[in-house]
Every structure is written in C-alpha cells, then in structure tokens.
C-alpha cells in the first residue's frame, strides 16, 4: 500500500509510545499504519502466525476422515468444515501480513519447525467418533479462546476473529450432533463416542495453555489488550460450559475429581498432566512429525498449480502489452478479454 508522505517533522519514539499507550488505555484499536512498539508487533506476528498455522494444520486430523465419512451428508459437512479451516488460515495470514511479514515467510518458519501450531493437532483421529469429539471439544475450546480476541487491540486480528467465530459455531454443533447420534446408537457406537471423548478431554483442557503462574508472557499480552482473560479463567469457562453438555450427550468425562462447587458455582477438575503437554509441544506427540511432513508434501505437490496460474497470468499480461503497443492506446478491457 502506498501512503501519503507526512508533512510534519519526525516525532520521537517516546511521544509515539505515549500516544500508543493512550489508545490502548482508551480501548481504541491499533490499525496497521499506526506506530507500535516493536515488541507489540513481534508478539502479534508470533500469535497470529501460530493461530493461522493451527487452522491449516488442523485440516489434517479431520481431512483424514473425509473419504470414510459414514454418509454423504456427513461427508459434505466435513468437507465444508475443512474448507472453513483453510479459509480461517487465510484470514489470519492476511491479518499477519498487515504487520509487514510475508505469508510464504511464515510457512517456511512453520515447515522449519521454528513457529508452532496448537499442540492439540498432534493427536490422531482414530475413529469416526473423533471427528465428533474434535468438533465438540477442540472447536469448543477454540471458540472460548477466540471470542475475547474479537475485542483484541489490533484491528485486523479482531476483525478476522469476528468472521472466524461466526463460522466456528457450525463446527461445534456438527461435532455435538455426531456424538449425540453415536451416543444414542448401538452399544458399540456409544462406546466409540465415549472412547473418543476420553482421549480428547485432557488435551482440550491443555489448549488454553499453561497455568497462569507458568505463563510469563500473559501479563504483557493482557496489558496490551491482545489477551483479555487468563489461561485459567478461559479454561474454567470452558469446563463450566462443557460438563452439562456431556450430560446431555449421555457421555462421561474422564476425570473422577470433576464436581460442581456449590459455593462458587464452578466445576472443579483434577490435575492436568503438564508433563504430557510440554512433551507434545517439544515434538514428542503422536503425530508431530507426520503433520509437518504432510504439510511440506502438500505444499510441494501443489506447487505446479501455483506455477501454472502464474504462467497463465504472465502470458495474459504479455498479450495485453502487445495489443496496447499495436494500437498505441491504453489497454482496452474488451481486447483484454479477447486476448487468448
């Protein structure tokens, strides 16, 4: 984007920082052309990129079931959902690009293992019921995380999140519907639904990140208005919404300590295995290597499509150039259309 050169003289960083802090304090929004501290920009790039990577890597565990969906209806829905995830990735990469980075650069960092995606996608989808559990629990946790980001201090990220949240609610409902159907089906189907929920419950709780005491960057993100609630607050909100839903599903959650605390009105839950979390983040999850290998392969396999599109565009532009030289006139859009 080209912008007008400002006529005013240089302003020093201290002054700009005061203005930035004032906007944050006023709950105003920071927009791409505004001055912002380097650390704010870096934090946003890292978070938005990680979020974008999660959307596209998240296509894999579900895409895995498209060819084996139990009915045409389920298959069409699953395709639509995986397509949505690709779209969400695009919204987020675009938001990241407003901060001065390039999407291909971010994809290199992902493939090189230097940027992360949500650790939840390092778990496998073993049965059809997993597609239901992912929709209900993983998308449910993601929505809980994402709704507050619609009020993030950075405008393009907040706006992308409004679109995404609107689309996510179909994702969670289709997951719930799959599990509800299985849970009320044959004993085998019920057992399959229960098994999937047993495997996905704890990783879903880990999606909110480490406990507040071990989350050093949270305070700064909260001060900047990027994050609105702490990891533990969001996790609690998710548990409180989800436990009653499990009862409606007729499924149990794999936590003997789970119970309603009458005094606070919140559900208390058992200890989370953070060793497992850090192990998976560090790369030792069941599917870490598979996810990145698949992503690299998909990018390489799709390269010819991008090359063909670029070659076609170049040829088209060439023809327009030749026509304008022949007529000595500005390119005529009608001739552009006629150009082979």
């Amino acid at each position: 984007m080209t912008t007008l050169a400002e006529e005013s003289g240089p302003v020093d960083d201290a002054e700009l920082l005061v203005e930035f802090e004032r906007m944050i304090a006023d709950e105003s929004r920071i927009e791409p052309r505004d001055w912002m501290p380097d650390a704010y920009r870096r934090t946003l790039v890292r978070q938005i990129a990680q979020h974008a990577h999660s959307e596209i890597i998240g296509m894999q565990p579900e895409g895995n079931w498209i060819t084996r969906a139990p009915s045409l209806r389920r298959k069409a829905i699953l395709i639509a959902k995986v397509q949505d995830e690709a779209g969400h990735g695009l919204y987020l990469y675009s938001a990241a690009e407003t901060l001065g980075v390039d999407r291909s650069e971010l994809l290199e960092l992902l493939d090189g293992g230097r940027q992360k995606y949500s650790s939840i996608f390092n778990y496998p989808t073993l049965t059809w019921a997993d597609v239901g559990a992912v929709g209900w629990l993983v998308d449910g946790a993601a929505i809980t995380n994402q709704v507050p980001i619609t009020r993030c201090s950075y405008g393009p990220y907040a706006r992308a999140m409004v679109r995404i949240c609107k689309e996510e609610s179909f994702h969670q409902r289709q997951g719930f519907e799959i599990l509800h159907t299985l849970s009320h089906g044959t004993p085998e189907q019920h057992a399959m639904a229960q098994d999937a929920v047993d495997r996905w419950w704890w990783p879903a709780l880990m999606m909110f990140g480490p406990p507040d005491a071990q989350s050093p960057n949270s305070a700064q993100s909260m001060a900047w208005g990027i994050k609105r609630f702490s990891n533990d607050e969001l996790r609690q909100r998710f548990v409180d919404m989800t436990v009653p839903q499990a009862q409606v599903l007729g499924l149990t959650l794999p936590d003997a300590a789970l119970q309603l605390d009458d005094e606070s009105g919140h559900y208390t839950y058992g200890p989370i295995d953070w060793d497992e979390f850090y192990r998976v983040v560090a790369g030792a999850g069941p599917c870490n290597a598979e996810r990145i290998t698949h992503h690299r392969r998909a990018r390489a396999d799709g390269a010819w499509v991008r090359e063909a599109a670029a070659a076609y565009a170049a040829k088209h532009a060439d023809n327009i150039h030749r026509i304008s030289q022949l007529t000595g006139d500005a390119p005529d859009p009608v001739a552009m259309e006629a150009a082979p």
Binding site: A76, F170, Q172, Q174, E177, M241, Q245, V248
Partner: peptide, 19 residues
Amino acid sequence: DKVYRHPTFYTVPAEAKHL
C-alpha cells in the same frame, strides 16, 4: 445448496446450552 454451513442446520437438544 450448502445449508449445512449454518449452525441452524443442526438440531441440538433444548437442554444443551452454549452451543
């Protein structure tokens, strides 16, 4: 013809909240 892209396409029991 892809009405299933909308959350209203899915029937959710009335007692299930926050979905």
